[in-house]
Amino acid sequence: MALIQTGDPLYLPITQDPVPKTEDQLEEDAQVMMQLGTDKYASEMRARMMSASLLSDMESFKAANPGAVLEDFIRWYSPRDWIDDEGVDEWGQGKGHLSPRMMITDNPWSTTWASAQPVPAHRQKRLFDDTREAEKALHYLCSKRIGQVAQLLLPTLTHAALYTLSLQKQEALPSLPDVAQSILNKLQYATKPIHQKLQLYEEITRDIESVEALVAQVNSLQHKLGGNNDSKEFTSFLIQLMRGKEVSVPDGSRGDIGARITTMFRDAQKAAHMMTSVSNINKDTINAEDSRYKVFPEPSCKEFILRAIIPRPSPSSTPQPQRLYVCLKRDHIRLAGFFSEDTTFL
């Protein structure tokens, strides 16, 4: 591309980087733009708010391209506002003209171009003054109470907690990734508004706490019952155990899990009888004392269930199910029976 009036090559200028803004600052700017309205005054105010970066780019462009006009800048900066015409100019490039909005009298682009001076980017006033912005941030923090500063850390802390939770790989909790994703969706919604809603963070914290408790329970059970056992049978056992139902121990007391459960009860019995705190008794005495105590504690009650299928009330009746439940405790006995009869005689 060549300059329209002089035919000199068009040089791309070195411009200042755009001003970095956080998400809440962008949302504040959008709210200000919406509150200005749609009249002529509002349009002028929007143009003034956006003219700082535009003026810097125009000054850089003029410094890199002496003799340039507004049309040259528009071709580079906003190609959509340059409409091509038929034919070529004297420099061998296509002709064109500005769009209708650029040809409005005293529009922001033309007035800013008229006031712009040819100044390179390194000599311009900085669009983003990091020192001033840092002072504003420090002043903002100094004006807040400790509780308000802690609230500013909620998005970061909850994201860190959720990230730590997502790193947990548990085959016994197959739905953990889906639960973590649902919490993440809720967290994205909570961190969106400028003004925080503590109620949403409380709900997210409770969700993370409940999932963390499940993960801790699985880790504890896996350490106590399985050790390094990663078999499918043991994983299935953990899944059933986490569902809160009665679970049959694989291989009973002869299996690895049963042996670990027996050891846990034996250790509990020792602790109950203060055996672990005895340090001045020799090994033979300790083994003799261990043999005095049973592996499992004394039961608080005993339950018996008798089931039978017999014909009642006569031998020729159809066999019917019968059931008798007995509960034995130290101070009472309870019986509950279920009896059926065949009262149809053919």
Rank of each mutant, 00 (worst) to 15 (best):
H223V: 01
R48W: 11
S43F: 07
M103G: 03
S115P: 00
F128D: 05
A2V: 15
S143T: 08
L346I: 10
M264P: 00
I305G: 05
C327P: 00
A114E: 13
Q93V: 05
L198C: 00
I194R: 14
M264Y: 13
S231Q: 04
G252S: 04
T112Q: 09
A68D: 02
S236D: 15
H97C: 05
N219H: 10
V295G: 06
A268M: 09
P79Y: 07
R266D: 04
M103N: 13
S175Y: 11
S166W: 01
A116N: 06
V218R: 03
K283W: 11
S166F: 01
V247R: 12
P297D: 03
D130W: 08
D84P: 05
G87N: 03
M1Y: 04
D267L: 14
H223T: 13
Q148C: 01
G7Q: 03
A47I: 08
P20A: 05
G67Q: 06
S248A: 14
P155C: 01
T262S: 15
S253A: 14
P100F: 07
P177G: 05
M33I: 07
K21F: 03
D29N: 10
W113Q: 06
P297S: 05
R266P: 01
G226V: 02
S182K: 12
Q5C: 06
H195R: 15
V215T: 10
T105G: 02
N185G: 14
V88K: 10
T205D: 09
K283M: 13
M102D: 03
G7E: 08
E341M: 10
A268W: 07
A47W: 03
M103T: 14
S115R: 14
Q16A: 09
L225Y: 02
F304I: 12
R334T: 12
D106R: 15
Q188V: 04
W82I: 09
I14A: 12
R266G: 01
Y11W: 07
M50H: 09
L184T: 12
I305F: 09
D342I: 04
S143D: 14
A64H: 00
W82S: 08
K95T: 09
R206C: 09
D85M: 08
L173C: 02
P321I: 07
R101P: 04
P100E: 10
K192S: 11
L173W: 02
V326K: 00
A160P: 00
Y189A: 15
D57Q: 13
E23S: 11
A52W: 08
R292Q: 12
G258R: 02
P120Q: 04
K95E: 09
M275T: 04
L98F: 08
G227I: 02
L154T: 00
F234H: 13
I183G: 06
A288H: 13
L127M: 08
S253N: 11
P66G: 04
